[in-house]
Amino acid sequence: MRMILLATDFSERSDRALRRAALLARATGAELLLVHVVDDDRPRRIVEHETGDARRLLHDLGHSLRNHDGIRCSTSIVQADPFAGIARAATEAGADLLVIGPHRRHLLRDAFAGTTAERVIRTAACPVLMANGPPVGPWRHLLLTTDLSDASCAALRRFADLKVGAGAARTVLHVFDAPALRLAMAGTLPEDARGTYLDDQRAEAAGRLTEFLASTGLSDAAPIVRRSGAPPAHEILGAAEEIGADLLILSSVGKGTLARAILGSVAAQVLASALVDVLVVPPPAPQKE
């Protein structure tokens, strides 16, 4: 990994993301680019005043990272819509990873959908890390998720190329469906028949996951399967809590139970509710002929 871009608004949430980005930069030797976007859809005097303040704050942050943390660091200010500015900065810098802070959590409603964070994650060409957990050290346990699709396979390989999480335990989750138990007549099935059917579906899902891991070079990861009895996001968060994962890895493109409307319902729910770091990885862009 050569370039990590941190999008900061100088809030406490952004400070958490900054410390995680600094840990990753130090561990991988990557350069860290600090970016602040000034919303330019306001009176010019306000934009210029905020730009000046941001320039001084970024200078101090960059100086501290270079001199106290020993990290190669540069800074940039972009005048644009926050979402567009972050996405453009990541593309222009050729960022391998974009780090953002957690979104503001509301007690009465989920305010994730439609936020700058959601728009950035949904459209970014590079992996995006939402730093939710306390950045006290390297990750200890990674939970990777897959729907066994080709797109998910490509995303997991792209995650491997980032070379982050070295030394951490790795678990791969596949949420499987048991369609017969969703049918109207499922309630008429005898209990033993339901149990046998579910065991067969679980064994089949476990076999497919084992084959998938072998094909993606993740044979050393611990496979787990869970039935999609609850919404997929709940299964992901439940599995993460059970194994003590401190980083969740999701693919931004896929099909089936786990990836249905990813960055529609599933990923938005995970990102809105997760108390640990979440990394959303798009598959590599198609090679141009």
Rank of each mutant, 00 (worst) to 15 (best):
P134L: 12
A90K: 04
Q79W: 04
A113E: 13
A214P: 00
A125C: 00
A184D: 09
A87I: 07
A154V: 01
F212G: 01
I224D: 02
R55I: 02
R88H: 12
P102V: 10
R26Q: 13
P286K: 04
G207I: 04
E118A: 15
T91G: 09
D15P: 00
G217R: 12
P286R: 06
L248K: 06
F10L: 07
A17Y: 07
P43A: 15
L213I: 05
F10C: 05
H234D: 13
P286T: 11
P82G: 08
E242H: 13
A25S: 14
V225L: 06
R42T: 00
G133K: 02
D246Y: 07
R26P: 01
I249S: 02
A259M: 09
M185T: 15
Q269S: 15
R226Q: 08
L181Y: 03
D110M: 11
A87P: 02
L107M: 05
G133V: 10
V78K: 10
L198A: 08
D81C: 06
S273M: 03
S219E: 14
T115H: 08
A124Q: 04
D161Q: 11
E31W: 03
E50Y: 08
C73G: 00
G207E: 06
P223C: 10
A233Y: 11
R227P: 04
S152C: 15
A87C: 14
L32T: 03
D81S: 14
L248P: 01
R109K: 08
R66K: 15
P223L: 13
G165T: 12
V253P: 10
R119K: 11
S228K: 06
L162M: 09
T188C: 08
P43M: 12
V225H: 05
T145L: 12
T210F: 00
S14H: 04
H63I: 02
K163L: 10
E241M: 06
G62Y: 05
S251M: 03
L23I: 02
M3G: 02
L57C: 09
L275M: 06
A169C: 08
P283K: 13
A154E: 13
Q269H: 15
R104G: 09
E50G: 00
A54I: 05
G137A: 12
A22R: 07
A21H: 00
D147M: 06
T146Q: 04
L162H: 08
R20K: 14
T115L: 04
H49N: 14
A7P: 03
V120F: 02
D177T: 00
Q201G: 01
V225M: 03
R140A: 12
I224W: 00
A155Q: 04
